[in-house]
Amino acid sequence: MLQLFQFISRSRSFIVFVLLEAFCFVFIVNNSNYWGATYFSTASVLSAKVLETSSAVTQYTNLRQTNEVLAQENRRLNETLVQIRQATPADAPASYKADSAFAKRFRYVAVAKVIQTTTHSPNNYITIDKGLADGVREGMGVLAPTGVVGKVKFANQHQSLIVSVLHSQFKISAKLTRSGEIGFVQWEGRDATAVLLNDVSRYKKVARGDTAVASELNSVFPAGAMIGRVRSVKVNPDQTFYDIVLALSTDFAKLSYVYVVDNKLKTAQETLEQRVDAK
């Protein structure tokens, strides 16, 4: 008996070693047991908390990439949404079938980053970091996630200049979604958060808070692109049109990512319309 205890005492480190290793291998072999999964995996309270904190810190380093990936995803989704909307307009009669080339005419060409923007001058321009090399061409429309931004004026190889909505020469046909009235939007040149909606007859009903979107009478922007909300409706006694002020949905001072939209049938439409003038 004494010899046994002496043996255990002498080789106790070996015995502990064998025991611990046996324990480890039991652990390894049935590695999916509940006990192990609960206390010794990343699902355990300690590990989960530590990893959560660490990923909350490292997340910031990936934000730029995440942003870019999301912007690309949105570009794809927007393109699909516009195609579906164009193929089956909500207010069309049942017998209307959109031509497939017509329904697919809007293409979201690129996601671009705004690298320069102004809002204070009477004619504002925006510079983006995509150009001819990325498929951007002059005359294409530019949309932000929050709504209409402008139209491409010049493009070089890697940058483009955009005429913003906040420009005295920029006009866009807009439709009020609730009343269905169509007018054109123009900037009056002072307030960078508001534009005027002209040409809406004073004999129609226009409510405050109504949403203005790009209308179907529009070759640059897909119909339904957000413009703003009606902020105030006034009428002068001697005029036949309302003075409608729209609060812009897009904050032009804070633009970051924009989408460049191409209408593939735009030149075809323009040549068709010019034939009237040629005669």
Partner: peptide, 29 residues
């Protein structure tokens, strides 16, 4: 003996972050 116990605990702790049940513990022991 204490060294072995420390090794085992360390290995299990690392295992719990790598999701490798007992592998690090075995090697460390």
């Amino acid at each position: 003996v204490w060294l072995l116990v420390i090794c085992f605990a360390t290995g299990l702790l690392i295992d719990s972050f790598y999701n490798t049940f007992g592998v690090h513990a075995a090697a460390t022991v």
